[in-house]
């Protein structure tokens, strides 16, 4: 029987050699905890993230937009599902994870505590929020935990239409009337900074960043990912003819990258703490779905049990 010390060594060798860790493999408790925290947070974000966009399904301005938006939100439900399943392979079931979300113990991405006020926000969410998520998720395809990595590969493949969907909405608005273009600019103004906050605190202030990097759960730091997102997004904003709400934003020829202003971290921590514009509504909506669905889930379980019993009886 291998000693824990040996197991630790085997584990570290695997990480070193880029061999994925799989559910039944030995892993340090902290690695497991860290993963459950990150994956479930990611799953909760997908599910809560359905809500702001969901607001606009019944008000989508054309049938083409309506079906695209519905399909996109449906994918988010799917992605939440894949991620919950990945977290479950680590030994914590979905029911428990959902309870942690509802009790406020587990977090989800703060961006979803901002309201979707206009149709242009649906464009901005697709372009910026999904854009930021994709930068993060592309990196996570190479994460060291097998089920998480496989989930991410599937999610990235499916998400490729999400950002395009959002950008196309804004492009249409920017080519439309003055009123439409103003709507697009307003959405960018409100979503730009919260989108940058999605990458989390600066690595020097991040509680989990260093360890996650060492275990190759994350493959790039928060600051690098954020910079990457800015560098790829600014030209897209220029193409739309929209102005990014950051007076300090300018191209730095020397580092071949953009310099930019300061994130309002006080706002960031306040939204995390529950003081965002929609924190209460989002959790209340999830709680209501959970509570109102309880008798339905129980009925399905009871029916399955009865049916199985009848089958056994018939066979006897």
């Amino acid at each position: 029987m291998a000693q824990e010390k040996d197991l630790q060594k085997i584990f570290e060798e695997k990480i070193e050699k880029e061999i994925k860790i799989e559910p039944k493999d030995w892993m340090p408790d902290e690695y497991r905890k860290n993963l459950i925290r990150q994956i479930s947070q990611h799953a909760h974000s997908e599910v809560v993230g359905m809500l702001p966009e969901g607001n606009w399904i019944t008000r989508a301005p054309s049938l083409r937009r309506k079906v695209a938006l519905l399909a996109k939100i449906q994918d988010e439900a799917g992605h939440g599902l894949y991620l919950y399943c990945a977290a479950e392979t680590l030994g914590k079931d979905r029911e428990t994870l959902v309870q942690e979300l509802l009790s406020g113990k587990a977090k989800y991405s703060s961006i979803f505590n901002y309201p979707a006020l206009t149709w242009a926000d649906i464009g901005a969410i697709g372009w910026l929020v999904d854009g930021a998520a994709i930068v993060n998720q592309i990196m996570l395809q190479k994460t060291s935990y097998g089920p998480y990595s496989r989930g991410m590969i599937r999610i990235c493949k499916e998400e490729s239409f999400h950002q395009r969907q959002g950008y196309e909405i804004l492009l249409t608005l920017c080519r439309g009337t003055e009123e439409q273009k103003a709507m697009a600019q307003d959405a960018l103004n409100r979503f730009w900074w919260p989108s940058l906050m999605m990458f989390g605190p600066s690595d020097k202030d991040s509680a989990h960043s260093a360890q996650s990097m060492a275990w190759k759960i994350k493959r790039m730091g928060n600051d690098d990912l954020r910079q990457k997102f800015i560098d790829q997004t600014v030209p897209q904003a220029n193409f739309l003819g929209l102005t990014i709400p950051d007076p300090e934003l300018k191209w730095n020829e020397e580092k071949q990258s953009y310099d930019w202003g300061q994130i309002d971290w006080e706002e960031f921590y306040n939204v995390i703490k529950g003081n965002g514009p929609c924190n209460k509504e989002r959790l209340a909506a999830r709680q209501a779905a959970y509570d109102n669905g309880a008798w339905v889930r129980e009925a399905a379980t009871a029916y399955a049990k009865k049916k199985a019993e009848r089958k056994t009886k018939d066979a006897a």
Partner: peptide, 11 residues
């Protein structure tokens, strides 16, 4: 392909 939750095989 992956996993999911369901009360019975049909679902």
């Amino acid at each position: 392909a992956g996993s999911l939750h369901a009360p019975d095989a049909e679902m």
